[in-house]
Simulated scan of single mutants.
Amino acid sequence: MNEVRWGIIGTGTIAQAFAADFAHAKTGTLRAVASRRKEAADAFAERYDIELSMVDYYSLINSHEVDVIYVAVPHSLHFELTKACIKAGKHVLCEKPFTLNETQAQELFELAAQHEVFVMEAMWTRFNPALEQAIEWVEEGEIGLLQSVQASFCFNATSQSEGRLFNKDLGGGALLDVGIYPIFLAQLFFGKPDFIQNQAVVGDTDVDVFEQLLLGWESGQLASLESSIISQQPNRAVLSGSDGYIEFGQEWYQTKTLTLVKNGGAEHAIEFDFPGLGYQFEVEEVNRCLQEGLLQSPNHSWEDTLNLLATMDEVRQDIGVYYPGEPEPCGHDCDIEHHHHEHGHHKH
């Protein structure tokens, strides 16, 4: 494939960060953007020097001007828009969470295989140079046997209480938006957990606003994870091993600093120098996979995405958070009080 031509669906915060960082990608051209509002599409196109601006998502999906589409709309729309892209023969990078649940993702991956198009969840953190370095250190045995992962992603979004994060219809809640990152980090190293324990707070709008998860593996590893949309945290992450630990700087999911601390106290700190926030690295990964004719990235595979969603599905089922269209196991008249009490969940 020659120069890969990209289109973006959506013009929100994450689409803006992505478009700004696209300029730093070594490959690919950003050719088109679509929004449901003409003013938004035009302003976005002008701001990021994009040739085509479209008012209808489907005119971009069916356009011959793009090869791959970045889907950056609220979670509830990921499934139908990614499905439309696949059916139109377009490759897709869909913002995380890839879909609301594992069942939806399974359907999309099967469709992608049929239509022979590349599809990847936009887990941009996976391609951050600091994380790549951490993976290398772990693989090289720098911290001995990796025993635990501690990670958090918490911020206070209560000022946007009318926004999508607190809106059940848009797939809101802390888990899908930010909880997915710490879970991703733990599962990157240990795979799908054998045990999941959680404490969660469900807010007034019936979405989870804060949770702490403890994941466990038969082989003896543990992960202690926290996510919130009602409180702040330095959002660091630590990988602990038998011979030392690796600490990510603040906002670990986009950090440029990494420290290796050995038993005995020897420290090795690295500072990574890259422009922007680091969205360009996932763009380069998609372009690389397309050049190689792959349908999925070996670094963030379909299975990785399904495993993330499976864990989040299980947590949501336990805390009783369901999105429109999802089956609820016991209807509305089951003993909610008992359920909440039993698992130690609290209303906020």
Rank of each mutant, 00 (worst) to 15 (best):
V4A: 05
W6A: 06
G10F: 01
Q16Y: 08
T29R: 09
T29G: 08
L30K: 02
R31G: 14
R36P: 08
E39A: 11
A41G: 08
A43N: 10
I50W: 06
Y58Q: 01
N62P: 06
D67F: 03
V68G: 13
I69R: 02
Y70N: 12
F79H: 11
F79Y: 13
T82A: 04
A84Q: 05
H91V: 04
E95F: 06
T99L: 00
N101F: 06
F109Q: 11
A113P: 08
E116R: 14
F118D: 11
R126C: 06
P129N: 06
A130H: 02
E132H: 12
Q133I: 02
G141F: 03
C154A: 12
F155T: 08
N156F: 08
T158A: 04
Q160M: 06
Q160P: 05
G163I: 01
R164T: 03
L165T: 04
K168A: 13
L176A: 14
V178D: 02
I183K: 00
A186F: 00
Q187L: 03
F189E: 01
G191W: 01
K192G: 06
K192Y: 05
Q197G: 13
A200I: 07
D208H: 12
E211P: 13
L213N: 10
W217Q: 01
L222W: 10
I229Y: 05
I230P: 03
Q232Y: 08
S242N: 12
Y245G: 10
F248C: 08
G249C: 07
W252R: 04
Y253F: 05
L258E: 04
V261S: 10
N263Q: 14
D273F: 13
G278N: 02
Y279S: 07
E285C: 09
R288A: 15
N299P: 07
H300L: 07
L306H: 03
N307H: 09
L308N: 15
T311P: 01
D318K: 15
D318C: 14
Y322E: 00
Y323V: 00
D333V: 08
H339E: 12
H343M: 09
G344Y: 00
G344I: 02
H346S: 11
K347G: 14
K347H: 12
